[in-house]
Structure formats: C-alpha cells, structure tokens
Amino acid sequence: MIYRLVGEGAMVLHMAFLVYVAVGGYLAWYRLPALWPHMACALYGLGITLIGWDCPLTDIETWGRERAGQAGLPPGGFIEHYLTGVVYPREHLLTVQLLVALSVAVSWIGALILHRRRQRHSSENRA
C-alpha cells in the first residue's frame, strides 16, 4: 500500500510541477520574487525537454509502482504516458511545448512590465 501511495504521490507532484511550469510565472504578476522559483523550474523543464535530463519524479513514480506490483512508466516518461496521445494528439507535442514556452515568456515579460509600472507609479507618488 505504501509503495502505491509513493507512485500516486509522485504522479500528483509531477502534474502539479507541469502546471506550475506552464502557468506559475503569472504569480510574479502579483509578487515579483515569485519569478525566481518559477524561472528555476522552467529552466529545469527546458533541460528535460531539450537536453534529456532525468526527472526524479519519474524515477520515484516508477520505483513506487513497480514495488506495488504495477507497471512503471514507459521509457518516454510521464508526459508520454499521461498526456501525449491522451490529452492532446501525439502529432501536436511540439505545438504544446511551444505554447507552454510562449506562456512562460508572456508571464515573465508581463511580470517585468507590471513591476516597472509599479515602480514608476510609486516614485511619482513620492514626488
């Protein structure tokens, strides 16, 4: 039972991580320091996508599932197993990756624009 919980917990954390990478940068629109942890996660996600770095959550989920007597994740990992071909068609993987990258870029640019506006507005009110 505990191994199944490890596998399921890793799956939930994995999904939360992916959602955070895709839209977590918008938190920086409210609190600019939120940009730094998002940047670290987004860059790690980019490394996984482009360089092929291992994701420890994939390893933990596979470990837990195998010890619970279930099949581990396939070699393609979490995204291939749970998302590609399930949430979106396999042939649209690149499109989805580019949309996530666009969302990250828009969130970061928007955060910086809002931060500059607030700084300008704050300095005008002091004068």
Rank of each mutant, 00 (worst) to 15 (best):
G7M: 11
I2Q: 12
T58M: 06
T49F: 10
Q119I: 09
D54C: 09
R31S: 13
R90I: 03
Y26A: 11
E66T: 14
D54R: 14
G72T: 14
E8D: 07
V6A: 07
V21A: 06
L93Q: 03
I79V: 08
Y3L: 03
R65H: 01
A40H: 07
T95H: 04
I60L: 12
L57R: 13
H81A: 03
G85K: 02
A40N: 04
T58H: 12
G110I: 09
L102P: 06
A22H: 11
Y30P: 12
I48H: 02
E61C: 12
L102N: 05
I79D: 00
E124W: 15
Q97M: 13
Y44F: 05
T84N: 04
W29R: 08
V96W: 09
R118P: 00
T84E: 07
H14W: 11
I79F: 04
Q97P: 13
T62V: 12
H92D: 05
R117K: 05
G52V: 02
L94M: 15
A10D: 05
G9R: 11
V21R: 04
Q70E: 12
S122D: 05
G7Y: 14
P75E: 00
P75I: 04
L102S: 07
C41S: 08
I51T: 09
L13V: 14
V23N: 05
L102F: 13
G72K: 12
L13T: 14
V12L: 11
H115W: 09
R117M: 02
A111Q: 15
V23A: 08
P37V: 00
L57Y: 15
A22G: 09
R31Y: 15
Q70I: 15
H121I: 14
L18D: 01
E80K: 05
R126V: 08
R117I: 02
L114A: 14
R90F: 00
V19A: 15
L27V: 08
L32S: 09
M39E: 01
T84F: 03
M1A: 11
F78G: 01
F17A: 08
L5C: 08
W63H: 07
